[in-house]
Amino acid sequence: MRKMSYQRVSEICLKTGYLLINGGAESYRIEDTISRIGYSLGHRVNCYVTVTAVFIEVDGETSKFIKSNLGGTNLQMIDDINTMSRQLASHTLSPKDFVHEIDKIYQDKHTTDFPFYLKAFGAGLVSMAPMLISTMPLYYFIYCFIVGTIGYAISYYLSIISPLPYVDLFISGFTIALLGIILKDFNLIANYHNIIIGAVMPLVPGVAITNAFRELVMRHALSGAVKLLDAVLVASSIGFGIATALIIF
């Protein structure tokens, strides 16, 4: 089998790392995947992944790096790349097809995505949190569903409109608390605490918290600490949004 040139391999590895970071994978998994891909392509690849950058060295000849941004989650992308690298290692996918597929995903910047209405429905399901069952009557879950869907939709569209982080979560937290207070004023519910707790659940930074803990445990302290800080900032921006609404009204 003819080996690929090391420039081409380093390019492919960088693109794979970029896509995996954007998908929300843990850094030690990214390093592992990249060195396995390099091995299957017939080269020795050293790489170092931090939160927002991938450094790569192929065969001691060339070293490159690529920059990425924090945030963004696409578990489908992680699964696709994982499956492809496994197929590459077991020789069911030729290196040429692999390069072609990675280039295609890198150009489009996304894989198959759920439509927005399905995501909003999922947010509604998350809002009906099982921890609230014994604390309130069952028909309250309908209000939880509606308020949670609205809150998620607001944060979804605001994050598309404006590139600034954290503000969209502040505003959606504010709106959720406001809707809870309005429901209370119309005497539809007895108290708004449970509605707010449920409706905030879809905005929880689940990916960041989980990855941060798993990375800290594997002693990737740098990216773990940064992701933990990001998770705390996201959670407190939601919290201060709620606090603002509670203070004003």
Binding site: T73, F121, A123
Partner: peptide, 10 residues
């Protein structure tokens, strides 16, 4: 609720 969160994170 677990399936709902899996829809959000795609």
């Amino acid at each position: 609720s677990a399936i709902g969160f899996s829809l959000i994170t795609n």
